Amino acid sequence: MTPPPVRIDHLVTSGTFSLDGGTWDVDNNVWLIGDDHEAYVIDAAHDADAIVEAIGDRRLLGIICTHGHDDHIDAAPDVADRTGAPILLHPDDEVLWRMRHPNRAPDKPLADGDVLTVGGTQLRVLHTPGHSPGAVCLHAPALTTVFSGDTLFQGGPGATGRSYSSFETIIESIRERLFALPPQTVVRTGHGDPTLIADEAPHLEEWIARGH
């Protein structure tokens, strides 16, 4: 079987996350999906130089923000200015975006069900609120993968202990949207190692019982 014409590139960048008066050191996953000619960046975190280098001479179709927390968007305007690519964000997270970039708005809204195409491969937008109101995941069925941002990690849901988040909502999003995907779907997360839907789905009731 001929492999898909697109590939997934991965960077880990380091910086800080700030919200509710606190600041924490974080390492972020930056994902690039594309072929030799064009690509999307998913979450332009911290290091614009490294991201632009990874893009190379490809045309950048867009900078997709899985949500508006500052550690996932801090380098987005710089990457956009240097490549001419638009920044895509769900409107429900514009309140978070403006905390970091009050003078630079996103360029295009993301909506549930949107389909973005790169190298002939489709990325479907899944609105998965909970970690933040406008959190989204990107499902690439042809690659059997989903980019989950901070909605789902290896070992549980994303954090919901800060402003604009809801544990009940993130559990519903994971149950209804992510656990409806094929079990062997690879979950490429916003931080840390990938996992599989099949490995996380059996633990949903445990997470609910812990209520974290």
Rank of each mutant, 00 (worst) to 15 (best):
I33W: 01
Y40T: 05
F167C: 10
H90D: 10
L11C: 06
P141I: 05
G130R: 08
V115Y: 07
D74Q: 01
L88P: 00
G62K: 01
A85E: 02
A45W: 00
H127G: 09
P77N: 00
R7Y: 12
H69T: 06
N103W: 10
A111P: 07
D27E: 15
V95A: 15
D199A: 11
W207S: 10
H69E: 08
L126K: 11
G34S: 02
S18R: 06
A105S: 11
V6I: 14
G84D: 00
T13A: 00
I8C: 06
E53M: 11
G130F: 09
T169Q: 14
T23H: 04
T185L: 03
G120S: 07
H131V: 12
L110R: 00
T185R: 02
H72Q: 14
H69K: 03
L89A: 07
D78P: 03
L181V: 09
H10S: 10
H67L: 12
T83W: 03
V187N: 03
D78N: 07
T16V: 09
L32T: 04
T128L: 09
F147R: 06
P77H: 00
T189N: 11
I33L: 05
D35M: 05
H212K: 14
F147L: 12
I170A: 07
A142I: 01
T66V: 15
G161E: 13
R98F: 09
A80G: 04
I171S: 05
D71S: 12
I42V: 15
L123N: 01
V146W: 15
A54V: 01
I73W: 01
L204F: 15
L178I: 15
L11T: 04
V12N: 09
G134W: 13
S173R: 07
L88D: 00
T121R: 03
T151Y: 07
G113V: 10
I208W: 13
R175N: 07
G22N: 15
W97F: 05
G62H: 02
R59G: 10
N29Y: 14
T195W: 01
P157R: 14
A48W: 02
S165D: 08
N28A: 12
L110I: 02
V79I: 01
R7C: 10
I63Y: 02
P129L: 06
G15E: 05
A201P: 01
E200M: 06
V118E: 09
H212V: 15
R162S: 12
I8S: 01
I174V: 13
H127S: 08
P3Q: 14
E205C: 08
G134T: 13
D49Y: 12
R100T: 09
I171P: 07
S148L: 11
L178T: 12
A159T: 14
A39C: 14
V41E: 00
H72I: 02
E38I: 05
T185C: 06
A209S: 12
E206Q: 06
T151V: 15
T128I: 04
F17M: 12
Q154E: 13
T121W: 01
H101V: 02
N103P: 04
A54K: 05
D70E: 05
T128V: 08
T189L: 06
A209Y: 08
W24S: 10
P106Y: 04
R98Y: 10
W97M: 07
M1L: 13
I33Q: 02
D150H: 14
G149K: 07
D78R: 09
A111R: 07
P106V: 08
V125F: 06
T16A: 11
